[in-house]
Write a protein that binds this DNA or RNA. Structure first.
Lengths: 241, 241
DNA sequence: CGGCTGATTGATGACCGTCAATGAAGGTGG
DNA sequence: CCACCTTCATTGACGGTCATCAATCAGCCG
């Protein structure tokens, strides 16, 4: 229950940095094409969209921050690195998520595509103008940022207090919930991406998935897909959230 | 540099949940008394302030959320708990920090005073009215929330990728930076609070502090105070941020 | 079919958690 | 004012979880 409250919060999601926020393109709709002039999407028509191939850097930590971005389709990872190369992935962005929102002069994390991804790039000036013109839009941004913050808090609990098995189970359930509770989920990112998101190593992620497989909680499919065979057992394992 | 960029971000700080944000009472000023009708502080005069004694619960995760709070003096901890009692402290709030900001019906974490604390409680309705009346105020809230998000990201790096020694060193430096780089800092919270904030145990925190003491990087004073004897060495140890 | 990249599995060990005892500090009451 | 008690910090011994190092395996592409 509280588990699902937290997950629901996650549904309307975003990832901060220079900053991220989920802003409904079309609320609860799948990954549709851009619909310029959609009254429900104030951002439609701003900036311009572009397709990036997989494993492409969109911007790096420290770059001058001039634009905000919205993911239209595909997947992006955001991460920060320590001087010696250790990496923490802040979040994975999917359709509707925004990044680069913030009031800093530089991006505070690096953004890279995981898969081929369509991204709308919006100059900050245009976004500012929109906020001035539509006060309600600023509220929406605030709301989206707030949701992002909540997700970040859940991630802190995960990183600070959960075991490897709990981390992996939580991660899988989150992915599922993002897809409306689908039993079959996509894992387009590699094991090391998952590891760097959960504060683990690739080996531990792999071993944990193997154990979940052998206990019949999941099934690993071809093409980076995965079946959640027993959501209840996974939720127990996840230890809340 | 990037170290201080991150820390600077921290200076204008907040903690999310129902949500938190730092909103300058008087920017960069210490812990002054409330100054109603201060043009630089749109919140002054809203709601009313009250003094709470130490170790008092302000609200709990799941409570109906009707107000936002601003810390005027003292210290508050925000935390989330897993069903089995494991606790993750999201953040410590000091003068100027806000909590309870958000658009959820319930608070998403528990807030408790660490020390005796003066807190301004502002009904959400009043806050909403202020946002309607002053569009610039909504922007300020967004900015504060964004800063909070950045701090949350730094905390993810700490929790997911830093060693015990790096965690403690980072924590001490953050406290110092919050005080403008003071060499002597306050540690009003207990070891277990620190542990639950850093994803460690009280024993490990204690051992790590002892080691820092014996290597002359810090000195532990009476009354929960602490001297940073070698900031540079601590910054190296902290491993960035 | 060979070579590359990433996933899996294995062996080992370190870091930090757990369990436990001691020590210090503060608060209360005699 | 001191004695007692409670609470918290410190220190020690030990063990487990997960990281590290390393080898094999599977998939993919040319």
């Amino acid at each position: 229950m509280s588990t699902h409250a937290a997950i629901a919060a996650h549904a309307n999601r975003a990832v901060p940095g220079y900053l991220v926020s989920a802003l409904a393109m079309s609320p609860a709709s799948g990954l549709g094409a851009v619909q310029p002039r959609n009254p429900a999407d104030p951002l439609a028509g701003l900036g311009h969209a572009k397709v990036y191939e997989r494993e492409t850097t969109l911007f790096s930590e420290g770059d001058a921050a001039g634009s905000v971005f919205r993911v239209m389709s595909g997947m992006v990872r955001l991460y920060k690195m320590l001087p010696d190369g250790r990496r923490q992935i802040i979040g994975f962005l999917q359709a509707g998520d925004m990044m680069g929102l913030a009031f800093a002069a530089q991006y505070l994390y690096t953004a890279e595509t995981v898969t081929a991804t369509t991204i709308q790039r919006i100059p900050r000036l245009e976004l500012d103008a929109l906020m001035d013109a539509q006060p309600a839009f600023a509220r929406k941004l605030l709301s989206a940022t707030t949701s992002e913050l909540m997700a970040a808090q859940d991630q802190m609990v995960l990183l600070g207090r959960k075991t490897a098995a709990e981390k992996v189970a939580t991660f899988l359930l989150r992915l599922s919930d993002r897809k409306g509770g689908e039993r079959t989920i996509d894992l387009p990112m590699g094991r090391s991406d998952i590891a760097d998101h959960l504060g683990l190593t690739t080996e531990t992620v792999s071993r944990t998935l193997t154990k979940l497989k052998s206990t019949r909680l999941i099934r690993i499919l071809v093409g980076g897909k995965l079946d959640l065979l027993d959501r209840d057992a996974l939720a127990d394992l996840a230890g809340g959230f």
